[in-house]
Design a protein around this nucleic acid. Structure first.
Length: 620
DNA sequence: GGGGCGCCTG
DNA sequence: CAGGCGCCCC
């Protein structure tokens, strides 16, 4: 960063890369380069004096002077000297500011460098002043012409070099001696002081001021330009004030890498919906105990973001991205609702149904517009969620699309071999012995098992983990898929009776789990005193959601569609009503509920028809 | 009887 | 998840 080139680097290079302490005069101005040892002597003396000044609280910006210099500790003079030698290494500091890469850590060195430079300035100024004053106090020496090293651009004595190296302000030990003898030389031409001193002081002031402002600027710039670094820095320094919890797990998270709105930390998430009665909190809150329950990985997830107008929070670019992704996933405006929704639901058995249904019919995508005001649904946060959720489905330009369109049965088996995450046994031999009867065409594989690896190289007869995963995700849209639908969405599967059964069975199992959870939470709500089913809403941060998500979307690599939340909410409410009204006494009390739910399947995004879809998820 | 679904069990 | 089984519907 050029910023680094501020005054400091220049100064340094200009006066002496060796060490500012080398030549006291150096700092004054270029021309101020003394040439002979006398100067050294004078310098030494001045330094001693300066030291004295530092020791006293008064003089020139002492605060600054000893701020980091440690000059305040005489005892450390020696050590300091060593330290002072470091300044020479400040050279490296230059790259520091320039580099500016790392946010956090960078700040330290950089600021330090600035301070150091400031200190130099101060010292130089002090020396100047001293020099200007000393003559009077001290005996105006003989002032040999030769000694005059006035402002003239005297070449630096070669020897001086070596001296200077240790002649740092701090190096007082040996200097003391010289001083006595040097005093005499010290005074430059008497006439030098008054006028020139003034000028020098002036220029020094300017320089100093400039340096300070530059330092401030650069620091500020750094801070502003690199907010992250800033935060880190502050965080490290003022741990106390740092917000709190929320960050707990984020650090290890490797940085809520996904957290696109770091500054949103505060409003973590929707506060209890304004008018939301306790009921809704039941599931949305109370039931979702710790913020970061079992799966801390959920923290960084977008739903953390307050449901409040995501549009405002999301950068335009993001919005676009969101839209694109949304389309890719077929989440278009039409959402997942099927045209023929629950109109008829109002006619279902449950008497209290109208409560929950009324809204559904009204608005498909935003069902609860009216009746649910008390329980604002998190729809608004959808975009955010989608953003981070929809795994960077890296849709290479032609990639997925092309595959979907052109290859009816992509060579899914190729990548499926990976078996990501799922525990589904390999191309399982789930074959039901009895089914072997007619494996029909593929009987070549002999066994009576239903499933079997590849056949034509692209169509897989068996079901693999990828298929299971996909099926689970599909469950978010459809709880009761028909075999035809399944066939349509698993183009790479060679369906036969057995395979179909297996897949049907999968969904049956999915439902089982789903309903069990619903019942469980419904009962819990009842025991918790909830009386109004409308208060039961499944939000993304509710425990119920977490459980379901963990089951169907373990990797959390898919964005659960809102429609699923809606269905879940409805299901929950239905269970709640049934149980609360004692209908569960009837052995088949769940059937009515099943019936209702079975009518609420949504359209599945087209992209699911791609046999490579799940893999896309996995790959990312 | 085939196809599904739900429940129970392992 | 998968098996097994009973039940229902077409």
């Amino acid at each position: 960063m050029e910023g680094g080139r501020s005054l400091s680097p220049r100064e340094q290079s200009r006066c002496s890369p060796f060490a500012w302490s080398q030549v006291p005069g150096s700092g004054l101005s270029d021309p101020e380069c003394f040439g002979d040892e006398h100067i050294q002597a004078k310098r030494a003396r001045v330094e001693t004096i300066v030291r004295g000044m530092f020791l006293s609280p008064a003089p020139l910006g002492p605060g600054r002077a000893h701020a980091g210099d440690g000059l305040s500790c005489p005892e450390k003079a020696r050590g300091r000297k060593r330290k002072q030698s470091l300044p020479a290494q400040q050279g490296p500091l230059e790259p520091g500011p320039a580099g500016n890469r790392g946010g956090g850590r960078k700040g330290g060195p950089r600021v330090r460098g600035q301070l150091h430079l400031l200190r130099q300035q101060v010292r130089h100024l002090q020396e100047r002043i001293l020099r200007a004053v000393e003559p009077r106090a001290a005996a105006p020496g003989p002032a040999t012409a030769g000694q005059r090293n006035g402002p003239g651009p005297g070449p630096r004595g070669v020897d001086s070099g070596h001296h200077h190296c240790r002649g740092s302000v701090g190096d007082l030990s040996g200097l003391e001696k010289h001083r006595v003898s040097e005093v005499q030389y010290l005074p430059e031409g008497p006439g030098f002081l008054p006028s020139e001193a003034q000028a020098l002081l002036e220029s020094l002031k300017k320089e100093l001021t400039g340096a300070i402002s530059q330092a401030v600027d650069s620091v500020l710039q750094k801070v502003l330009v690199d907010p992250s670094g800033h935060l880190t820095q502050l965080g490290g320094r003022f741990q106390g004030p740092v917000p709190d919890g929320r960050r707990e797990s984020s650090p290890p998270e490797g940085g809520a890498r996904k957290d696109p709105l770091p500054l949103e930390a505060l409003p973590r998430r929707a506060q209890p919906p304004a008018g939301a009665p306790l009921g809704s909190l039941m599931l949305a809150k109370s039931l979702d105990p710790p913020r970061y329950p079992i799966s801390p990985r959920m923290i960084p997830k977008p739903y953390q973001a307050p449901p409040a107008d995501c549009p405002l929070a999301v950068a335009p670019a993001h919005i676009q991205e969101e839209q694109i992704l949304g389309q890719l996933l077929g989440h278009g405006p039409r959402g997942c609702w099927r045209g023929s929704l629950p109109q008829d639901l109002s006619a279902r058995s449950q008497p209290s149904s109208e409560v929950a249904l009324q809204p559904w019919g009204a608005a498909r995508l935003r069902p609860l517009a009216s009746g649910q005001q008390q329980c604002p649904w998190p729809f608004t946060s959808t975009c955010l969620e989608r953003l981070a959720f929809v795994p960077p489905v890296k849709m290479e330009p032609g990639g997925l699309q092309a595959i979907t369109d052109t290859l009816p049965f992509p060579a899914a088996h190729i990548s499926f071999s990976g078996n990501r995450g799922s525990h589904l046994s390999q191309p399982r031999e789930t074959g039901t012995p009895d089914a072997e009867g007619r494996l029909g065409d593929k009987q070549l594989l002999g066994t009576g098992n239903c499933s079997f690896s590849l056949t034509l190289g692209q169509i897989q007869e068996g079901l693999n983990p990828g298929h299971l995963k996909k099926a689970k995700l599909m469950f978010f849209f459809t709880r009761y898929p028909s075999s035809n639908l399944l066939k349509a969405y698993f183009p790479d599967v060679q369906f036969n009776r057995c395979i179909t059964s297996q897949m049907i069975k999968w969904f049956s199992n999915f439902r089982e789990f789903y309903y069990i959870q619903m019942e469980k939470f419904a009962r819990q709500a009842i025991s918790d005193g909830v009386t109004n089913p409308k208060m039961l809403v499944v939000l993304r941060d509710s425990e119920l959601f977490r459980v379901l998500n963990m089951h169907y979307n373990k990797g959390n690599d898919f964005e659960v569609p809102d429609c699923f939340l809606e269905i879940a909410s409805l299901t929950l409410q239905e269970f709640f009503r049934a149980v609360s009204t004692g209908k569960d006494a009837d052995p088949s009390w769940k059937k009515p509920i099943y019936k209702i739910i079975s009518k609420l399947d949504s359209d599945i995004p087209e992209i699911f028809k791609s046999s490579s879809y799940p893999q896309e998820l996995f790959r990312n």
